[in-house]
Each structure stands twice: as C-alpha cells, then as structure tokens.
Design a protein around this nucleic acid. Structure first.
Length: 816
RNA sequence: GCGGACGUGGCGGAAUUGGCAGACGCACCAGACUUAGGAUCUGGCGAGCAAUCGUGAGGGUUCAAGUCCCUCCGUCCGCACCA
C-alpha cells in the first residue's frame, strides 16, 4: 500500500469513479425532501479564477452536506455563454464566436471537474446553443404576447472606440468599461421589457425574502426607487398641458419658475421661430455633450436658460417663466419640474444664480410668514402665502388637501413614480439570441410563430470593427416570410441582452433536455424555488432583479408555481491578493490550476473555505495554503496509523477515552451547526483541526474509540475535501463513497463532562480559574470559591456584598 | 451629501444569547530527530519585570461590555441633482 498522500493520483481516480458511477445525477423523488443548491453560472472566458473556486467550493459543501443529510439535492452547472468577448475575439483573432466559446467551455469544464465538484453534469446547459436559445426566444414571445415586450425609439450607450452599443452596466462613470472611452448617446429603435409593471411587486416581495442579505434588498429597494407624489398640470400660455411631478405639492404656491429637461418635446415647440430658438439649440447641444459623465455625477454646476415662454400655475393662475437646465432628467417623472426656491435646496441655488424670485410658503408658524430665507427651508411647518390652504401643516395635511383640490378640478392627480426603468434588452450584436420578430411591409411587425423556432444564428457573417451588427452582413439571415400574409418580410437584426438568457437558466436545469417545452411544469413544481443561491454581490441588482421579474412573469403566465426564484441568497466576498483584487495588470493573479497542480483540489478548496467566512473578502496567502496541505497530510498519516495499529486493548472506557469521545461529538455538533445554520465554514474547519489535535494527543489504547473518531472525521471532512475523504474511507475498509454515507447525529449524552473549569472574578476582574464538578448548585459553587486560599486576599478590608454565579461558567464576587 | 458594512495580536481570523478576549491557522522563537532541513514531531508565542493594562478614540449602562447606548475618527461598498 502506498502510504504517501499522492493527491494527484487520488483526485484523478475519484473524479473518474464519481463520473463513471454517476453518483451526482438526480431525479425527482417523492420520498425525500428536495434541496436545490445553485451557484451563479460562469461566463466561459476560458479560464477559471479564484473567485469561481470560492463560489463553487461554497456551493459544493452545501450540496454535499445536504445530500448526506438525506435531501434529494439538485446541484447543476452550465454556461452563460453569449456575450461580447466572443465577438471581440472574432474581430481580433478571426475565430468564430461559437468555436471560441465552445472551446473555452471545454477548457473550463475540465478545470471545474478537476475541483471535484458534485455537479449533475447531465443537466449542463449552454445559453449559446440552439437547444437553449430556442426557449429563450420562446419566452420572449410569451412576454410579447402578454404585452410585456415592446419596441420604442430610445437613446442608448454607444462606445465610439469599440464601435458598439454597450449595456448600461458596461458603462462605468460615463466611460466604457473595457477601453475607457467616453460613452455617447445614440438614438435607435430598441426592444424593452416592461419590468416597470412589476415595480411594486418587486418592491413588496422583498419583505418575503428573509434569507437574502439586507444589503442586497436595500440596493434593490433603492434601485426601484418608489416615490409618492402628485402630477400637477401646469399649462402653457397657448393652453397646452405641461404636467410636472412633485413630491412636495404643499409648496406649489411658492413656484416662481418652471424647468424642463433640455430634451423635453415642448422645448422645441415653444421656441420654434422665436429669438430663443438658436441659443436654446446650442444649450441643448452643450448639455448633451457632457450628459453621460457629468450630468449624473452630482458635482455639476447647475446651468440653465430662459426659453422665452411662460407656464400657468394651476393653483393660482400665476404666470412663471420656463427655463431649461442641465439638472432635470427627461426620463424621470414628466421631464418637467416646478421651481420652488424657498423650499428646495437645488431650486434655491438655481434661483440665486439667475436672480429668480423666492416666495416663502412654509414657515415655523403663521407669524414668521415673511421672514427672509438664507437657505431653503425644508423642515416641517405650516403653509403661508398659500391662499385657502394657509395654516395647514405641510406634511401630510397640506399635501393631501392640495392633491384632493387639484384632483377635483381635474388639474392633477396623485401618482407613484419609480426610478426603475424598463429593461432595454436589444443589442446590436451577433453573439446573442436573435429576437424572433419579422417586419412585413403589408402587415407590419409580426412575431415569429412558435413552431418556427429557433431562429438560428447564421454563420455567413463578417466580423468587422464597425459597429453595425454582424448579422446585417449575413446574406442569408435577413430574408423571411411574413407569418401573416405569406409575403416577403425582413428579420429583426438585434439580439437579446445576455441577462435575458441568465434570467431563466435555473428553471431550465429542472428539465434541461426537454425539446417540447422550456420545462415540464411538474419538474419545476418539484424543484423550484432554488433553496440556496450563491454568487458575487456585483449581481445584486441586475441579474437578481431581472430573475425576480422573470419569475413573476412566468408565474403570471401559469408556467411555474413560485413567485420568487431564490429563497436564500449568499453573496460571497472577493478573493484578494496583497489587499487588492487579483488582476492581470497588477500581476497579482494566483491561478487555480497552479495551486491544484502543486497542492491538489482538496487543499485549494480547504484553504479558500478556511481563510475567511464566505461573505467577507478573502486575502490569498501562500503559506496558509501550505498549512491546509499540512493539515490534510496529518489526517492522512493519522488515519492510516489508527488502522495499521494492532496493539489495541479494547476494554472499559477510561476517562481519556471519554474525553476523546466528547471532542468527537462536540466537533460533530459544531461542524453541523456551522455548515447548516451559519455557513461559517472557517470555524467548521478549525473545529476539525482541533479534533485532529485531540486525536493526535490521545494516549489511550481504545481502538474502537479511535476508529469511530476517524470515521466521523472523514465524514465531516468529505464536503470540504471529498477526494482524500473517499480515499481514506476506502483504505480503512469501507465500501462505497462517503458521499452516500448518512451524516451522523451527535449524542448529547457524550458531551457531558464530570468537571468544568470556571472563572473566578472579583468585581468582574478575573482572579483565578477553578475546576469544580459539573452541575454544582450556586451555593456549592460559591463555597468552593470561598474556600480558595487567596480568597481573603482578594477581599482585602472590603465586604463581599453580592455573588453572581453563572452555573458551570463563572463566579463573580462583588466587593465594596 | 445619503444609506449600509466593518475596525480585535506581526498576519488571516475566533468569541453564536452581555459571562474567562485572542479558538484554529500562518509567521516567528526554542527544542527533538537528522549528514542536512524549506520535511516531521514537541513546546512557546497580545503588552509589561510585576501589580496590572489591553478589542479604532472618548463617554455611558451593568456585578460583568469586543458584544448594548451616545459622540467622534478611520476603511470599504452601494446610491448620488430622482423633483
């Protein structure tokens, strides 16, 4: 027998065996509770990084543990495999996106397999394959049929250097994420999903997610940005409606000007043919130029100009000048804002700069109505200079009263605004799922019939660095037949945002090879929701919000039976080196392959789980990795020695035997709790280290006791380091794999000790430690302490006025 | 500016319900074994000669505070003219 811990051989052997015996494949089973563990699937960049290793190691511990606890565990893996990098590789190196992507997948799959993860590879999906994107397109059609997908003209982010459209999330502070060029706006016809229809439900249902981190829920809450207010209809002098949205309708008598977003359609209308036309046009051009970076940055100097027109205030008929500014956004509210300098800080600054009048309409009391303001008054107060509403408390009385009055007169209404915008899903790219729509000259826009799916990506395309979708270079793709009249039609040339593909993959895993439907409802009914989802916090809003929206829409269509996709969410921290994120440019990247080659997957997994709790950032440390390697080597030798020894004399249990047994069961208790209740794998591992220390230090001679300890150690170790656990399991005369061994329960009776060490304190300061029999009552414990030789010394000339006793923990003498 | 998280030895971290601060590991030191040690094993390891002092700083509550309350400082993250 080779007694050396040859991890390379062992890991290869067991990975092969697990795959051959298909031990990780699962079916629906009614006699067991199900448990769905999912880690966010990766983009197949070609190489695994430490962040992946961390993500998947965490998931694997949970999956293996739950399986051993008797759950029917679904633990799948796949590839988020559409996306821009494949297209860039095509432009740069002339490789076809599909070939590039599939070879990356092959490479990353074998890297993942070298980690020994318990995936059911039979359910593997790749979003870029027609078997998958057929159903992405089918789901698009369902959304379209239910009125949740629509097309409109919109301004999108355009990177002139990459010559392509960028998703919002690829724009960082107004710059292109990849090349750092300043992103421009470009007007294009775009497809949107009406996620705003679900704004309220997405917000409300956050309260139904106690298993999500508060941080993520707060971020989504802010992103949705619910705001209750009033839409008040101002009018132009010509009598046209000019509605504004305000949360402060109580200040409407203080309006001294109105501001429009430069893009507001009324601006050109109101200035056409006037002396202002030219200068307004220049102002708009200037604002739009810096709109991307500065307009949303917060430090922007407020600028504006009068456009020569006036608006009529609905509450008092007053005529106020209309301005345009760089700080009003077209896509929030109505793109028009009432200016109340007396009670809004921004308006106050603006009015100051341009000498606009300031009228106070809220004051601490009615007597101070005309006190001059040196800054905007934003506190609670009573209304003044507000006609019939004078004297009302502004919030909520005046707001309600004025809203009601406006509503009765048909001059406004209460509305709820959301910051959340509809989800722009079209991309002028090749490597995505084609949007299944055609355009007929006679019948207009038509959805592709479901039986014609998938609309396949053509291969006769050219990848040129010009920005137009490569799909447009395909001679075969564009021509289609109108499903309505049978006449000639052209295809939609845009593809879908890859976030669409990742919004439903967790449903597809339930029935990955179904070619009749995206999934069989009976199967999603069995598996969904995902019980534990694990991934990076960078998806806190985008992917996680889109998936929630998708789940709700699918629920409404009757396709699934759950309204939330992920019951519990764990957001793992980053893997750092030298205090910063690993990156090629900093040269501080540690490659998983390198570590696996040098120490093995078990060591890599163990280190990454031991170095920090999962939610926190983790600092990579080469010598701490060696420490984990040493730990596995110690176990290797310890366990084999236990089984090699022949000099055992199994007799009555000695106190030493009981001590060891106690440590075993304490460890079992702690490891079980740390995995299932807290996901604190670091403390679970340190508990196992303590057990190994105790086993090494054990001087007794009870073979049964030691073998039981070794057995339980291997079981507990197996979710963390499955290869070495299985190898030792086999070498110690066990059949099968630890994976199919039930997780043992600890025995409460074995945790009992005869004696405990308690703390002896005087006024809360530790004076001594004392060993006494367990379970002593308070009086007896106190007697032990009073009998201590130093007791009189601690008291000095003072009196013991009180004794606090925490049984089996401490005795605290309060002296005065 | 607003919101959130965090701050503990030389380092990563532990202390789960207010009850012995520093578990476990790394690094370091000493010893054993050894031709050798960057292997392995054993022991030590917050500061201080000590009494004592020690969880970012200051205050408070309590018999008792890393943990609860108040004020402040620092680091990180998210949002940032949202009317």
């Amino acid at each position: 027998m080779d007694k050396h811990y040859n991890f390379q051989e062992i890991e290869k052997k067991w990975q092969q065996k697990w795959a051959d015996e298909k031990i990780y494949q699962v079916q629906e089973q009614t006699d067991k509770p199900k448990y769905y563990v999912l880690e966010m699937f990766p983009y197949p960049s070609g190489n695994l990084h430490m962040g992946h290793v961390r993500n998947y190691s965490i998931g694997d511990v949970v999956a293996r543990f739950k399986h051993m606890q008797g759950y029917n565990v679904l633990h799948p893996m796949g590839w988020d495999s559409f996306g821009l990098p494949a297209e860039n590789a095509a432009i740069k190196h002339g490789v076809f996106p599909r070939d590039w992507t599939l070879s990356n997948i092959d490479n990353m799959r074998s890297q993942l397999q070298s980690l020994g993860l318990s995936y059911d590879w039979n359910r593997e999906v790749a979003t870029c394959l027609p078997e998958y994107y057929k159903w992405t397109q089918w789901l698009f059609l369902q959304l379209y049929k239910h009125g949740l997908a629509y097309k409109k003209h919109a301004a999108v982010n355009w990177c002139p250097s990459c010559a392509t459209v960028l998703a919002n999330e690829q724009v960082v502070d107004g710059h292109c994420e990849r090349c750092d060029a300043v992103v421009e706006k470009k007007d294009l016809d775009q497809w949107f999903f009406k996620i705003t229809d679900y704004a309220q439900r997405l917000l409300d249902d956050l309260t139904k997610l106690p298993g999500w981190p508060e941080k993520v829920k707060t971020m989504q809450h802010n992103w949705i940005g619910r705001s209750e207010g009033v839409e008040a209809i101002f009018k132009t002098e010509a009598g046209e409606d000019l509605p504004v949205f305000t949360t402060r309708v109580d200040t409407i008598f203080g309006v001294t000007y109105m501001v429009l977003a430069p893009e507001h359609p009324m601006v050109t209308k109101l200035t056409k043919g006037t002396e202002y036309e030219q200068s307004v046009r220049e102002f708009i051009r200037k604002v739009q130029k810096l709109s991307n970076i500065d307009r949303t940055s917060g430090n922007l100097e407020k600028e504006g100009m009068f456009i020569g027109a006036y608006a009529i205030n609905p509450v008092n008929g007053q005529k106020v000048p209309i301005w345009i500014t760089n700080y009003v956004l077209m896509d929030y509210g109505t793109g028009a804002v009432m200016g109340v300098p007396s009670h809004d800080e921004r308006d106050f600054d603006f009015a100051h700069k341009y000498n606009l009048p300031i009228i106070r309409v809220i004051a601490q009391d009615e007597q101070s109505a005309d006190e001059p303001l040196t800054e905007a008054y934003t506190e609670i107060g009573v209304l003044v200079n507000s006609g019939q509403f004078n004297g009302l408390t502004n919030k909520p009385d005046a707001i309600n009263a004025i809203a009601k009055w406006l509503e009765e007169k048909g001059l406004g209404k209460k509305v709820i605004n959301y910051r959340l915008r509809d989800w722009l899903i079209s991309r002028q790219r090749y490597w995505g799922a084609p949007i299944p729509m055609v355009y007929c000259e006679k019948c207009g826009m038509q959805p592709v019939p479901e039986e014609d799916l998938p609309i396949m990506l053509p291969t006769d395309v050219e990848f040129l660095p010009f920005g137009e979708s490569p799909l447009k270079t395909s001679p075969s793709f564009g021509a289609a037949t109108c499903p309505c009249c049978g006449g000639p039609a052209t295809r939609e040339m845009d593809t879908m945002d890859t976030f669409m593909c990742s919004s439903w993959y967790y449903m597809r895993y339930c029935d990955a090879h179904n070619d009749q439907a995206p999934w069989d409802k009976a199967k999603t009914d069995y598996w969904l929701s995902v019980d534990q989802y694990i991934g990076g916090v960078e998806h806190a809003i985008l992917h996680l919000m889109y998936s929630r929206f998708f789940t709700k829409a699918m629920y409404d269509f009757g396709l699934i039976s759950v309204e939330e996709p992920f019951t519990n969410l764990l957001t793992q921290g980053m893997v750092l080196k030298d205090g910063t994120k690993m990156s090629k440019s900093l040269g501080n990247v540690v490659s998983p392959e390198e570590i696996i080659d040098k120490y093995g997957a078990d060591t890599a997994r163990l280190f990454i789980l031991f170095a920090a709790p999962p939610e926190r950032d983790l600092e990579w440390n080469d010598s701490a990795v060696e420490g984990c390697y040493r730990f596995l080597n110690r176990i290797w030798k310890l366990v084999l020695n236990i089984y090699d020894r022949t000099d055992y004399t199994d007799s009555e249990l000695t106190p030493e035997d009981c001590d060891l047994r106690r440590v075993v069961h304490m460890t079992l208790k702690k490891v079980t709790a740390d995995i299932s209740e807290r996901f604190n794998f670091n403390t679970a591992i340190s508990a196992m280290m303590e057990l190994v220390n105790a086993m090494s230090a054990y001087k007794g001679n009870n073979g049964a006791m030691l073998k039981d300890a070794a057995e339980k150690l291997l079981i507990m170790l197996s979710p963390f380091a499955p290869h070495i656990a299985d190898e030792l399991w086999q070498l110690t005369n066990h059949s099968n794999t630890v994976y199919n061994t039930p997780w043992p329960a600890y025995n409460e009776a074995f945790l009992q000790q005869n004696e405990v060490e308690i703390a002896v304190q005087v006024n809360g300061k530790l004076k001594a430690r004392l060993t006494i029999p367990t379970g002593l009552d308070k009086a007896a414990a106190e007697a032990h302490v009073r009998a201590l030789p130093d007791f009189a010394k601690w008291l000095g000339d003072k009196q013991a006025v009180k004794v606090i006793i925490v049984p089996d923990k401490l005795v605290n003498i309060v002296v005065k």
